[in-house]
């Protein structure tokens, strides 16, 4: 019958990127308590992001935002059976080491927290736990992949309930990939230079027409329609941060967004799940936020 003929390999790119593949077509929800994690799992979340404050509160309360207390992460891990993600500050490799020690399933090196290093991101190849990183354009996505990110999410503008930045970022990334596919080999050298990314990776994307990792969308998604729009624009899945637990009826809204992501191309179903959800998060228009206070510009 069966025998293992080679040693087991842990933390390979394939199993890191593979977990993201299994999350596709799903919704990852920000939660700040075990009770919220329970609501998220019951509503059909494919994973939860454990954090101390949702982006809307980080934005309104200000101050330095850091990795969550390990006790909070443990309490959420104990509550649910779906994968648990947690955020580390950009460049804060020790926070990432702690999250790995806590055995979270994915680490989000996130611009929602205050960056710990304005030059370097975390060397993500040093970890067996996979990383997801934000990106506003293809070059940024590729630089994160070169550093070892196993999943990319477009950034959007977190904590606003305004989906316009998420739209801009997913359209930008998709558009830049489509443009690469139309270039000749000689033009790809210049494209790689302009994208500030290695030629081999740029050439691979030109040939396959897609990123080598899963691409989710995040930042400002507040309604089933927002989520379905991101899917129609080509996202593999959706992160919802403040949009659920800053709304009037989190249980129902969470379940509605899950359904809208699966049936993203069926307007009748999206209409049905959009009924009677109560108040959406109030939100802030991105254009009303002064440029220095925009989170999407963190990371480079």
């Amino acid at each position: 019958m069966t025998e293992i003929t080679s040693p087991e390999q842990f933390g390979s790119s394939r199993v890191k990127r593979g977990l993201a593949e299994m999350l596709k077509g799903g919704v990852i929800m920000d939660v700040v308590t075990a009770a919220q994690a329970r609501i998220a799992e019951d509503a059909g979340a494919v994973a939860v992001m454990a954090l101390e404050r949702v982006p809307a509160d980080i934005r309104s309360q200000g101050g330095v935002a850091r990795m969550s207390d390990p006790d909070l992460i443990d309490s959420i891990r104990a509550e649910v059976n779906i994968p648990v993600m947690a955020k580390a500050r950009i460049g804060h490799f020790v926070e990432a080491q702690i999250l790995q020690a806590l055995e979270v399933d994915y680490i989000d090196e996130s611009e929602v927290l205050s960056p710990a290093d304005y030059v370097n991101h975390i060397d993500k190849w040093n970890f067996t736990i996979p990383f997801v990183c934000g990106a506003t354009n293809l070059g940024e996505a590729l630089r994160r992949i070169v550093e070892g990110a196993a999943m990319i999410r477009s950034k959007g503008e977190a904590g606003t309930g305004d989906v316009s930045e998420a739209t801009k970022h997913i359209r930008t990334i998709k558009g830049e990939i489509a443009r690469l596919s139309s270039l000749g080999k000689d033009e790809l050298y210049v494209a790689a230079k302009e994208l500030q990314a290695p030629y081999e990776l740029v050439a691979e994307i030109a040939a396959t027409g897609k990123l080598p990792v899963v691409l989710f969308t995040a930042g400002g998604v507040a309604t089933p329609a927002d989520a379905a729009m991101m899917m129609q624009l080509g996202a593999d899945g959706v992160f919802v941060g403040s949009g659920i637990f800053k709304s009037g009826n989190p249980e129902q809204r969470a379940a509605a967004i899950v359904k809208a992501v699966t049936f993203y191309d069926d307007a009748k179903i999206i209409a049905d799940v959009s009924r009677g959800l109560g108040e959406a998060m109030v939100g802030i228009n991105v254009t009303d936020i002064p440029a220095p206070h925009r989170l999407a510009t963190r990371g480079w």
Partner: peptide
């Protein structure tokens, strides 16, 4: 197998 840290690749003989 537990959390993602325990995810792995290996060779299997399939009957």
């Amino acid at each position: 197998f537990g959390s993602q840290a325990a995810s792995f690749e290996t060779e299997l003989d399939v009957s």
